[in-house]
Design a protein around this nucleic acid. Sequence first.
DNA 1: CCACATTGCGCC
DNA 2: AAAGGGCGCAATGTGG
Length: 618
Amino acid sequence: MRPVTLDYETFYIKNEYSVKDLGNWRYTHDERFDPYLLSVYDGEQSWVGNPADFNWAALEGALLLAHNAGFDSSVTERLGELGKIPVITNPWACTANMTSCLFSSRSLADAMWVARKQRISKGVRDDMNKKNWAGIKAAGMADAVVKYALADSVECFNLWRDYSRRWSPFEQRLSDLTIKQCRRGVKINVELLEEYRHVLQEVIFNLVKSFPWTKEGKKPTSPIAIAEECRKHGIPGPPVKTRDEEGFELWEKTYGPRFSWVYGAGQWRSLNKLLGSLDTVKERLRPDGTIDFSLLYFGGHTGRWSGGGSGFNLQNLRKEPLFLKDRCMVMVPDEARVSKAAFKQWKQECTDYALDIRKLFVPREGKKFILCDLAQVEPRVLNWLAGNTQLLDAIKQGYSYYEACARLYEGWTGAPGTIKTSLSDKDYTLLKNKMLGLGYGMGAERFCEYASVDMDTAEKAVADFRANNPLVVDLWHNLDNNFRQSCGGDFTMELPSGRQMVYRDVLREIRTKRNKEKKLEKRFVWTALTGPDRYESYGGLLTENVVQACARDAFGEHLLELEETTGDVIWHVHDEAITEVEQDVTPKDVEAVMSKTPEWLPGCPLAAEAKEAPHYLK
DNA sequence: CCACATTGCGCC
DNA sequence: AAAGGGCGCAATGTGG
């Protein structure tokens, strides 16, 4: 098809009225919506002006291109709806998705830099903040804006012309599916949303009222105010949580009983984050009770989707409900976590309300949700890449990944599906932590914290894992060696799917780091560019990257087939698909698709677990 | 007023 | 020789 680029310039107010603030639908349905300029380019001719003045018939039979096609197609659709232009039904392709995949660069500026080593300026765009066409003319910027808009559509067209053949049909289908999913959106339980918002507002009000420092006008989580409060009572301030998790927990446990505000800042952040999400959902509601959302194709350099882009992330909704008692947040005590029965009892005695944000997301009228997760996809892929057929064979015989590990490495002899009951909780947890966490080079020190075990246990776990998994260790070393040998050039990994991951311009650098004795010393590190930025890498990390990328490709195949055969995939979270299907579709149908091994991953057993649900859960 | 860094919180 | 990784976003504070 003949490609033609479209690029709109639209009125926006940063941090208030923009796509990032409101999402595509809300933005294009606002009273302030004003696409005052359209730039079109077909490789020969260009046109810039008011969209209403464009000869839309000229697009007959064209493939429409845009850098963020989800946005430009929404604008076009809305203009048609408003009767300002004819209704356009051409297909679209997204060059931002293309450059994300090929160059790990989403913005046009980054893509131009990475693909072509050209610096383009977005200064004009920044100056268009809060201006409509009249404002731009009044500011004497009209010529600059026209030039800028034209340049954008030309760059966009040329990127497509030069690189689209490198973007595989498979990836293009995933890109198209993603745009479709974002626009299709998800149905919301609006009544429950309102209830949750009111409850949460009350809880936050009560909490803020209980902080001594808010009475003096200090911010709820002001570190300065909290430090002052600690000093006032002669107690030490909280350790930095991310650097000293144990110290922070000890601080909370020591002073929490005496001062209720010790837990306050953390609670406030949790509650406020949740309320923020609820408010966003409310703002985005469409007349049919659905919201659109943003899911970024190739949001991470491994190819995973990311959840951001418009202020609401469907990939990080909390799993555990927020528990309340008398309109105050209650935290789940460790004692309640020892067993399901203990949890249930605690819930009954110590809470009177559970706020579960996942309940808000429901299937459309007449449809039902089937939620499906891949089972330990990454360790399975890791062992496939490492060539550990022994382990894969055990999995094929019906053992879970952990059971297969226990049989091969720890002398376990139980039957498939029985390991949870045959090992103590402690031993099973250690097994899981070992087999999930140690595959990418983690050391004993880090494992202590990760698995909450003592140093002796950690050292043994790490040594055992490496002794038992020589093929995995070989994979680290091979990738490490090849990466280092690429010094001065690019390091490319060919994924089994045929996709390439490129680490550009590998360099050996000297960095100052702390050694085990916490002393500073100079060390060689190897770095490379993934997108526009440079990162350190090494064998374990490259292994993690290639495993994640490979698992993502397999999952991508599942998504396309689900959409084609079982029903709509509403959204997905790395290895979990949320599907909305007709009543006659069963969880087994969905599992059957998700358990398929791609033809390019022969011999790698994949498995999935699906369940029907009245709303999103778990 | 803005840009930027740091910290914390949520997920796989 | 050793090194788990991948995201997005809000709040706060600093510095221009």
